[in-house]
Amino acid sequence: MESSPSDISPVDAANDLAILEQARSSVALNPVLDFGPLWYAPAFAATAMGISLAGRVDGAVTSAVFLAIGVIAAIAVSFHGIRNLGVLPRTTAKSVLAFVPMLITMWFVFAAWGTAVSTIGEDDFVPFWAALGWVLTTAFFVVVRQVVTAIRDRQPSLG
């Protein structure tokens, strides 16, 4: 005997479909909303930019070396961290779009540092500006962390 729609009370189809959608969203968004490995690269690169300011004391070459070390460290730590992520999302429009805020943040940090570097002359007390820049960058990423954590907490839980 066939069951009719009235027989389906044990199955909540709407809820089950919502569970599937939440599962897809969590996989696409969680790696970005966790302030973890994927954020290490911009954080490291921003710190390297700060160190490169201190390097300007000895000239552009030292500055470039600091920056290169910072970027290489950022890439290495990021790859190591990504390998330790518990999930490797499939490449979907949603998972790619999730990176847009991160890219905007990176651009903002780089632009801010670029502006700071260009406004500092050789006669300025560069280490002070570098230390101040590092503090500002740290404060900036603390704010970013609060924001992404708040966004993540608003995501519906699967548990």
Binding site: N15, D16, I19, L20, Q22, A23, R24, S26, V27, A28, G86, V87, L88, P89, R90, T92, L158
Partner: peptide
Amino acid sequence: PKRLAAMGIIAAATKV
């Protein structure tokens, strides 16, 4: 529901 959610997560990822 829990099994469905597990399948949903695993299906959305290359590996979990």
